[in-house]
Write a protein that binds this DNA or RNA. Structure first.
Length: 376
RNA sequence: GGGGGUGCGCCGGAGUUGGAGAGCCGGGCCAGACUGUAAAUCUGGUGUCUACGACUGAGUAGGUUCGAGUCCUACCACCCCCA
């Protein structure tokens, strides 16, 4: 794996680069659609590739481990073969489920014990077996097993949790380097910075993470309910410490506005369920602002979803028709809006990249943010 | 034509042995929320008004009663049975 940093903005920390993986290149900044259970909900791989132009998608270790199960994925020859996506894949480690399924787990030094949200069965995740599972899933980029702390979070808890995440990282790293990929192509392990919203913790965590010879680094534990100012401040602190020659992945972020602001702080990679979940709930992002397509005001608006879009789906279906599909609870509705939102997010990243390269990113970003946060 | 039954919310149910209904459950409709997906989910609203309070309301019109959605009479509508 190799990251080429191609240009850096002179007025802010925004960067454009290319990450080369065994399954192809990823041009940054990039948004990665979330495909937790081996599918980007409601979106065909064909559409991801040809209309959305996704360059990489996510999978989730916890969910895939529970269903279909690691052995099935191994038999299939890895997740790429299983779901038919032959471009890059990144798997999250299950660290987020330590946070989101908090009432179903116990955290110990050894690892986290979970009861399955599907059938209640008990499972133990350790740094070691999470590496083993991610070897079997076979994603190009795999994530360290961490604890994503909640917000708000007591300083002492955040500190202890961060320190354990660091110890878990050491164990992840050891297991990862002791084992080989199973399917004949390279995998990269990204460590994760924690530290909640505490500057000194973020600083020391970033320093710890930066000490690893990884191909890229991630920032976790943000976008969990903290004010945006805190999220930006922590991101800024961490980006100033993480090595410049490696991609920086801000996990779980966020709104289109969040993405643009964090690009300016030096982030290269994002993922978030927001474009797909909101799409299924009728919220779409356009170049003119945010639309709740279920609102009665769109019932006779026969303009297309986004007249300035660059992808076919968003230029084909009208607002009135898509609202009708939602009213009628037709499955095509969420499918169209999911494609639309993902295409919008990825277009936004392409535009950001273009403006970073042409040197007018900050001006463009400030204008764009004002437009895209409006409620239509 | 005769007999029986049923009528309240935008719709469908439930319930009311004469005793506090703007009022139960679904649905629909109108909004809102959603950030490394336990989420095609969740929350709220949905008679009227001069609106933290009032008013009107159980097919329609009367009647009995301290009190009627509930009992009585007539009419109307729908459903069932007979002719």
């Amino acid at each position: 794996m190799k990251f080429d940093l191609e240009s850096t903005d002179i007025y802010c920390s925004a960067r454009a680069g290319t990450l080369h993986t065994a399954h192809g290149k990823i041009e940054t900044p990039i948004f990665m659609p979330v495909g937790t259970i081996g599918t980007v909900k409601g979106v065909h791989q064909h559409e991801l590739q040809n209309d959305i132009h996704a360059q990489i998608i996510l999978g989730n270790t916890y969910h895939l481990y529970l269903r279909p199960g690691t052995e099935i994925l191994k038999q299939a020859g890895g997740l790429h073969k299983f779901n038919g996506w032959d471009k890059p894949i990144l798997t999250d480690s299950g660290g987020y489920q330590v946070f989101s399924l908090a009432h179903r787990r116990k955290i110990k030094e050894e690892g986290a014990t979970f009861s399955s949200h599907i059938d209640g069965s008990k499972h133990l995740f350790t740094p070691e077996n999470v590496m083993d599972i991610q070897r079997k899933i076979g994603a190009d980029i795999i994530m360290a097993f961490d604890e994503c702390t909640p917000y708000p979070c007591e300083y002492n808890y955040a500190k202890r949790s961060m320190e354990m995440t660091h110890r878990w990282l050491k164990r992840c790293w050891n297991r990862f380097t002791e084992t080989a990929p199973l399917y004949g192509y390279e995998q990269a392990l990204f460590p994760i910075v924690q530290g909640s919203v505490f500057k000194d913790l973020r600083k020391s965590s970033a320093e710890e993470i930066a000490s690893y010879e990884s191909y890229g680094n991630a920032i976790g534990g943000l976008s969990v309910g903290e004010p945006h100012e805190d999220m930006y401040e922590m991101t800024d602190i961490v980006c100033n410490i993480l090595p410049k020659d490696k991609p920086r992945y801000l996990m779980g972020v966020g709104t289109p506005e969040n993405l643009l602001e964090c690009i300016a702080l030096g982030i290269d990679m994002f993922d978030c369920v927001m474009p797909t979940r909101n799409a299924r709930h009728g919220l779409i992002y356009t170049r003119e602002g945010i639309i709740n397509i279920k609102n009665a005001k769109w019932k006779d608006d026969f303009s297309v979803l986004d007249p300035n879009a660059t992808n076919a789906t968003s230029l084909f279906y009208t607002k009135a028709y898509v609202r009708h599909l939602f009213q009628a609870k037709e499955l095509l509705g969420p499918q169209i809006t999911s494609i639309h939102n993902l295409a919008f997010y990825i277009w936004l990243m392409e535009e950001a990249r273009r403006h970073i390269k042409s040197g007018d990113f900050l001006t463009w970003k400030n204008t764009m943010v004002k437009k895209i946060v409006r409620r239509l």
